[in-house]
Structures are given as C-alpha cells and as structure tokens.
Design a binder for these strands. Sequence first.
DNA 1: TTAGGGTTAG
Length: 524
Amino acid sequence: MRKRTVFVFNAFIRALALAGFGEDAVCVYREMNESGVGSDRFTYTYVLKACVCLSSRSWGLSLCVRKGKEVHGHVLRHGFESNVHVGTTLLDFYARYGCVWYAGNVFDTMPVRNVVSWSAMIACLVKNGRSFEALKLFWEMEDVSLNLGCNSVTMVSVIQACAALAALGQGKLIHCYVLRKGLNSILPVTNSLISMYSRCGSIEIARCIFDQMDNRDVVSWNAIISGYGIHGNAEEAIMLFEEMIRRGFSPNKITFVSVLGACSHAGLIHKGRKLFDSMAHVHNIFPSEEHYACIVDMLGRAGRLDEAVKVVDGMRIEPGPPVWGSLLGACRIHCNVELAERASLRLFEIEPMNAGNYVLLADIYAEARMWEEVNKVKKLLESSSLQKIPGCSWIEVKRKIYSFMSIDEVNPQTEQLHSLLVQLLVEMKERGYVPETKFDLCELDQVEKENIVLGHSEKLAVAFGLINSSNGETIRITKNLRLCEDCHSVTKVISKFANREILVRDVNRVHYFRDGVCSCGDYW
DNA sequence: TTAGGGTTAG
C-alpha cells in the first residue's frame, strides 16, 4: 500500500494479534512509530493484546512484561491513559502476566471506571489467587452509590472466587444474587455455578442445577464430570461421559482431562486406559501433554511405576513439567528414589522456578532416611532464592472467612486452638493414632516434629471449626496445597470421636470425612 | 470499516 494511514496500521496490528502473531504485531507497531503516521486510542488496545500473546517461551516472561510496560509509557506520553478502553486493556495485560500490583495501580488511577473495568479488576484478582480481595471488590462495586450494575461477566468471576475459596455460604449468597438479577439462565453463569458447588463440596446441588438446565453445552458436561471426579466418584463421571456421547455432544480436550482425572482419583486403570485409547481412535482428539500426565498420574499413583515410565518414554510429544511432575508425585507416594532422581533432574532443567519440585524430592529422600541428600536439596532450594509456598487453610464460619497459616500469630485464638489440638492429640494417641513425621524434618527430635505437624494450618482450621460452629454443622475447610498425610489421618479420627462431618477441599480434590473414614478411600 | 472484562481441567 502506498498510503498507510493510522487505520491501516491498526487493522494490521489487530489482525496479527488476533491470529496469535504477537511478535509480528509488535514489529508492525515499531514500523508504525518509525513511519511517523502517529497513533490513536485503538492502536494501544491492539498492541497490548499483541503483548499478551507474545510467545513467552522464546521471549521470556520478564521481556514480555517489559514490552507491555514500554507500551504503557507510550500511552502516558500520548495522553491516552484516561480512555476507559485503553485503561482496561492495560489492566488486563498486567493481570495476565500476574502483575497484580500494576493492574491495581492502573485501576486506581483510572479517571472513569465502568462495569467492564470493575469486572476486569475482579477477574484479575481471581486469576491471580486473590479471591478474597475479589469478593471484597465486588461488594464495593455493588455499593448503591456507585450504581454500576454488574452483568453476567462480572458474576462468572465472582462465582469463580467463591469456588476458589470453597466458600459455600458466600457462594449461595451470590447464587441468590444471580437469581434476583435474572442471570441464572446464561450458560457461562450456570456452568460456573455447577463448578462452584462441586468445588465447595456440594456435588448434590451441582447435579441439581445440571439436571434442571434447559440447554447444555460441552462446558456444562465437563463441569459436572470433573465435579464427580474431584469427589472421587469415577463411576458417575464415566456414566455422564457416556450419556453425553449418547446425546450427541462431542467431547473436547477438557472432557478427557476430566474423565481421565476421575479414573486416576479412583484408581480405575483399565477403564482409564480404554478411554485414553478411544481419544484418537473414536473421537479424533490427539492426546496432548495434559492427557499423558493424567495417565502417568493414574499408573504412578497405583504403584505401576514401570508402566508409567513406559508411557513417558513412548510419548509422541516431548514430555514437559506436567508429565515429569506426575511421575515425581508418584515416586513420593511409593518412595522410589532412583526414579525420583531421574524425574527431578529433568524438572530442575525445564522448570527451575518451581519450588514444589525441590520439596517433593527432599520429602522422598527424607522418607528413605537419606539425610545428606535432604540437606543438599534444601541448600539447592535456598541458593536458588526460591521459596516454598507456605501452607494456608481457610474456613468459613457464618459466612465469614478465616484463614490460618502454620505459624500464625495474627489470629487471637491461635493459642486456644493449639491447646485444643494438644488435648485432642492426647486423646487420639490413646486411641492408637501415631503422628506421621517421616517427611523432611530430619534435624529435629520426635517431640519437635510432632509439634510442627500439629501446627499445620489445616489442623488449626479444624480446631477453629470445632470451637466456633454448632454440633451437627459440617466443618468446611480449604487448603492451598495438597492435604498432608498426617492431617488426613488426624481429621479422620476427629470426625469419629467429635462426631462431626468435616469437608476439606485441597488443591486437587474434595475429602469428606465422616465417622472416621474419608470419601477418597485414602487413595489420593 | 477499528475498542475493554467472563464459562469447563490438571
């Protein structure tokens, strides 16, 4: 073209960004700047979208963020920061790269905010694991004086926040709100409600909503199938999968992740393998890394480590962090040092920033009583300046959410909780409970070890629940990591002799403790 | 003739 106007450049950058060619879009933007045609408010929304789809693999995350910050600078220089579309796109750019502080800063300084900018900020908080703040912001938004009016998009994020916190009370409140606003028949809203109820431990309500839907899409089926999966009911998940096919729905990648995950949680290996094989042959979906990770997890969990390794070695695509991570997790369950070393060596190479991998390997060495190796891994972790994610648990009592960390001086009741736990410990030991202290605590004596495990955040939350809720009420707890073995057995015992139903949603699934047994059948 | 936020998984 001889005459390239701002409009022409905009259209080209937009097209490239939409098609996922972030780098090319950024190049065209540079060309645009050099050509001297100028820019307008549309230019910045497109370039920022392009920065979101830059290939972080070849660029590196920090370079992607730097590129966006550069564009942010241009926005300020040209005075477009007061435009609500540009501001919201900027906010969303930071959100997608996990820069919550920058996103919040953009939000706070926007001269005009509308439903979309509020929704974007709420979504940003949810996506970055700050659901508690997301809910707070939502109630702030709902302040009548602001008179903004949320819509279905806002509500989807808010429902996700409740799901992430496993805050059933809040979730029900939000559900009522959705009904009052007449947003309940909008498919994405209903689908996220199904997921929310199952992740909050109430698969029954999730099923009820699913059964009452007039029209469903593949996402609705995926949501309910994965719901049964995290509740350990693989039979129901498989039945729904089969019904879905009978009714003419085409499963997608996520359907298979869900149903294979269900098989893995329940140890249904034969069925899982058959489903995996049917993917390509019957449904024309070629297994991606996530699906391989499910199969490796399924075999590994069941102790069939040799078969799991065969699957990894025979993969048609290069195995990455999910696959090696599943294998390492299986090594921890079955204490296989040799294989753990192979898997973690690869993981340290391709995923050096994940502290969890180091922790897993240290746990495996500790169980094998290889203290020297434990120390080596710990030193490696320290020198890399990575930090373990601290264990954290939440509990919702009377629609208020309380959180606990292992060493928690913030909560005034901590001392009371700890003494209750000590008292419970004595009673439990009389009933034959032995604290599980085999992992990663090599330099301490038995009493110190027991004290540390006793201070785990989920136990504090259970104790808080016992003190602050009435008999007959289910205690509902969420944990940011996987539930530890000791907490699992303690909660079983407590559910029996305190005669209470206790529900713990950990990062992977739901544990429902009743009368001394857990719904996961100790297989998780 | 161009614009911003959202559904299901591990």
